[in-house]
Amino acid sequence: MTHAVCPGSFDPPTLGHLDVIGRAAGLFDRVTVAVLVNPDKAGLFAIPERLELLRTTTQQWPNVEVDSFRGLLVDYCREREIGAIVKGLRAVSDFDYELQMAQMNHGMTGVDTLFLPTSPEFSFISSSLVKQIATYGGDVAKLLAQPVSEALTAKLADRSGA
């Protein structure tokens, strides 16, 4: 059985993330979407909220599970016998950093990294840009699954006191 992990912060999960997750689900027997818990970064969505959004938006793929992790991704992979890391690439600039990480991860544990280019219609989407645009009242509904768009709207309304 092949098992891969799609790691990230997913704050919030975008259609670009879901594109990569869905394509990975077609390539592997099992896919774990793993949300990085970074105590040094305050996200817009708390980890439990991100996990729930991911569970809701990935339920169409029965071989996808959602989890979170702290520490090194390679340790997470080793502990769960995950043999591959799947990373989406939006642009060449992503590749420079991700290649370095892939080589380091492989050197440490032998875990391979598979790079999936993001589908062109999602290549410009990032969680950071989505949050920034939404914060200033821009419409990001077409960049997110409906449950994520609704959660983002509610979260920003709560923060502004509306």
Rank of each mutant, 00 (worst) to 15 (best):
S68L: 00
I133K: 10
I47Y: 04
A24V: 15
Q100E: 07
G43P: 07
P39S: 11
P62A: 13
V5P: 03
Y97V: 14
R70E: 15
Q103T: 15
T56Y: 07
P62I: 12
V35K: 11
K41Q: 04
E121S: 12
S68W: 01
V111E: 04
Y76F: 08
G16Q: 02
L54D: 02
C6P: 03
V20W: 07
A4P: 03
D158S: 11
Q103E: 06
M108L: 13
R30G: 00
D19S: 01
L72D: 04
P48M: 14
L51F: 10
G16M: 04
F122C: 13
V33F: 06
V66C: 00
F10W: 04
S68T: 00
M104C: 08
P7L: 01
T14G: 06
E52I: 09
G138I: 03
L27R: 08
S93T: 14
K155C: 01
T58W: 15
P13G: 01
G83T: 14
F45Q: 03
L36P: 03
T135C: 08
D96Y: 10
M1D: 13
P147F: 02
R78C: 04
F124M: 13
D75A: 13
I85F: 15
S127R: 02
V130C: 12
R80V: 15
I47S: 02
I82P: 03
L72C: 01
L99G: 08
T109H: 10
V66R: 00
D112C: 13
Q60P: 14
T118V: 14
F28S: 02
L51A: 14
G137D: 00
A24I: 15
F45H: 06
A134V: 13
L116G: 03
D29T: 13
A141Y: 09
R23D: 09
Q132D: 14
T14R: 05
V92Q: 12
S128D: 01
M1N: 06
E150S: 13
F28T: 04
L99A: 09
V5F: 01
G83H: 15
V35H: 08
S149E: 01
R23C: 06
N38K: 00
Q103F: 12
S128M: 03
E98Y: 07
T109N: 14
P120A: 09
F45C: 01
S9D: 10
G16E: 02
S160A: 15
E79Y: 05
L156P: 05
V74T: 10
P48F: 10
L114N: 13
T58F: 04
